[in-house]
């Protein structure tokens, strides 16, 4: 063996030994293909009764305060939409500031400072629909995250790891329900997490607690005695954008075809 050749081989050998085997483990195939653990005792679900909602927006106010979402920034984890159907067959929808201050006028907010007044005698039907994260069983926002910063907890809530999020915005684009946004302060993806800090302590979410009319309820789908579970199992409830296959876990009473 020549000296040059010996040095070369020695260098390769040393490099090979230095590289620990563990560094090569990017994924563990066994874990990777592990199925979902069905032994979970908790699966958080939400129930919205649109008949009861009056559009006061106290839920939005409470949510922003509880979850430290800058109050005057035009972003919110939950919001309330207004739908007004007129007798000429048209429908109008708005959610000024996410209904943070409720709906205090019959004028529909068209955006850019324009409003459309609708006379009460022209209205055929009108109602309010609270929206929030659907905590999907198949969350597309989690699938598209390239760094594992957003994930589904064992009890079904989708969380965002602020220290790991790189702010690429794929999840914001991926969510069919438009519930995600950038947090104005942390510049990371932000979304409703069913007030995870509250529900895991046995409290109701801030919006559920703030709602004076019982339009919002949270429950555990794995508990057959839970009143919310009972309603979902025995009454007629709808979900949003079923055709996307995301299996949303926010159920609605009194959904209309124009609500998406």
């Amino acid at each position: 063996m020549k000296r040059r050749e010996f040095l070369k081989k020695a260098a390769i050998g040393v490099a090979g030994i230095t590289l620990p085997l563990a560094a090569l483990e990017i994924v563990n195939p066994r874990k990777m293909f592990a199925g979902k653990d069905d032994g979970a005792k908790v699966r958080w679900v939400f129930l919205v009764d649109t008949y009861k909602c009056v559009g006061c927006g106290l839920c939005v106010k409470a949510c922003k305060n509880e979850n430290e979402i800058p109050y005057d920034a035009n972003v919110t984890r939950t919001w309330v939409e207004r739908y007004v159907f007129t007798k000429d067959g048209k429908f109008h929808a708005d959610t000024p500031k996410g209904a943070r201050d409720g709906f205090i006028t019959s004028k529909i907010d068209l955006g850019q400072g324009k409003y459309e007044d609708i006379k009460s005698e022209d209205i055929q039907k009108a109602f309010f629909v609270p929206k929030l994260c659907n905590q999907c069983e198949n969350p597309p926002c989690v699938q598209v995250c390239p760094v594992g910063a957003t994930y589904q907890t064992p009890d079904g809530v989708v969380l965002v790891d602020r220290s790991w999020c790189i702010g690429c915005g794929y999840c914001i684009m991926g969510c069919p329900y438009g519930v995600r946004f950038f947090h104005p302060k942390y510049h990371t993806a932000e979304k409703c997490n069913f007030c995870y800090h509250r529900i895991t302590k046995g409290l109701k979410t801030a919006c559920v607690q703030a709602c004076p009319f019982g339009a919002r309820q949270i429950g555990n789908m794995k508990d057959p005695k839970d009143p919310v579970t009972k309603i979902i199992m025995t009454e007629r409830v709808g979900i949003l954008k079923e055709e996307y296959g995301t299996k949303p876990q926010v159920f609605y009473i009194g959904l209309d075809r124009e609500v998406k």
Binding site: V27, N28, K31, M32, F33, A34, G35, K36, D37, A40, A62, N65, E66, N67, N138, P139, V142, Q143, G148, A149, T150, Y151, Q152, T153, P154, L159, D161, S163, W164, N193, Y196, H197, R198, T200, K201, L203, K204, A206, Q209, A210
Partner: peptide, 29 residues
């Protein structure tokens, strides 16, 4: 690492769950 919900939905840092649980409760009821 990969957790209960598999690689597709359960690929995360476990410590973050505790961080969210420790978030401050403001509305007391």
């Amino acid at each position: 690492s990969s957790h209960e919900n598999g690689y597709m939905y359960g690929w995360y840092r476990t410590g973050n769950i505790e961080e969210w649980k420790a978030f401050k409760v403001k509305y007391q009821g």
